[in-house]
Design a protein around this nucleic acid. Structure first.
Length: 269
DNA sequence: TGAATTGTTATCGT
DNA sequence: AACGATAACAATTC
């Protein structure tokens, strides 16, 4: 569920509490979640200073003072929780970092799909990720190349992290709506104007979502209010905010997909 | 109770 | 061979 805007929000929120802190302890009773292993992660991060906290695609990236990196992927249901005493007893705690200021950061994940990975080779670990859609180098021309170079349906292509890093199911549906494109349209059939519109739609919807601290739809990700601005995702049967036509749910590559059948026609325009 | 949920990876087909 | 489509998988919630 957490996609680029949610991960970006989490990174911005935890950055001031992590940067400059020394990791005093790391514990996890969840072998599958830590790579290469819990012991390896602990051995390499305990005693290190956190130099920076950033994001690459949907990965949270902790840069340590010896050049090592800790990558955290939240997948479907992962979340960070600070052990303040304020928020009761956190559930589904899978890993915990103790900091030199006495604070504890918890990684909670009901479904255990998340991953914590230590690497000395950040570039290698993120080599198969596509460009960052909000960076300056992600131009309409660059998107056009990515689209024209393949013959795929737009929706699975946009979800593919090796093509563009950070889009998930929500913002793919939202970007396609804003661009007026049907999710089954072949990527190599878009005209220049459509490519420019899709490029603008992707960037503007991601920026709007970050301004709104992401989307809160259920128990998984709290604190955002982008759900108020969603045009199609999760609005099956509700009227399109643009033309009042009922939003339709369909299945594209085993993914729930939401469109306005009038605003997103197949083929042309 | 089982359907829904998601990103990644393995596998199948063209 | 390379690419695209599809299935399987992790585990829980409602």
């Amino acid at each position: 569920m957490p996609e680029l805007p949610e991960v970006e929000t989490i990174v911005r929120q935890c950055r001031p509490r992590l940067v400059g802190r020394r990791i005093a302890a790391f514990n996890s009773a969840w072998p599958r979640g830590c790579r290469p292993s819990v012991a390896h992660v602990r051995r390499n991060i305990v005693g290190r200073l956190v130099h920076a906290v950033s994001r690459r695609g949907k990965f949270i990236v902790l840069e340590l003072d010896d050049g090592g990196h800790l990558l955290i992927h939240l997948r479907m249901s992962g979340r960070f929780e600070w052990l303040d005493g304020g928020n009761g007893r956190p559930r589904h705690v899978r890993a915990a970092w103790g900091l030199d200021d006495g604070n504890r950061l918890l990684f909670c994940d009901a479904r255990k799909f998340g991953r914590i990975t230590y690497t000395r080779d950040l570039a290698g670990a993120t080599a198969d990720l596509g460009p960052e859609p909000l960076e300056r180098c992600f131009t309409a021309a660059r998107l056009g190349h990515l689209l024209r170079h393949r013959r795929r349906q737009l929706k699975p292509l946009l979800l593919d992290q090796t093509v563009i890093a950070g889009l998930g199911n929500i913002y793919t549906d939202e970007a396609l709506f804003r661009a007026g494109l049907h999710p089954l349209t072949r990527s190599d059939t878009l005209r220049p104007a459509q490519i420019r519109r899709l490029h603008q739609a992707i960037r503007s919807v991601l920026r709007l979502a970050i301004r709104n601290h992401g989307t809160t739809l259920d128990w998984i990700y709290p604190g955002g209010w982008m759900q108020r601005r969603l045009m199609v995702y999760g609005r099956t049967g509700e009227p399109c905010r643009r033309c009042r036509t009922a939003i339709v749910a369909l299945r594209v590559g085993q993914r729930g997909t939401h469109i306005c059948p009038k605003c997103q026609r197949r083929g042309e325009e």
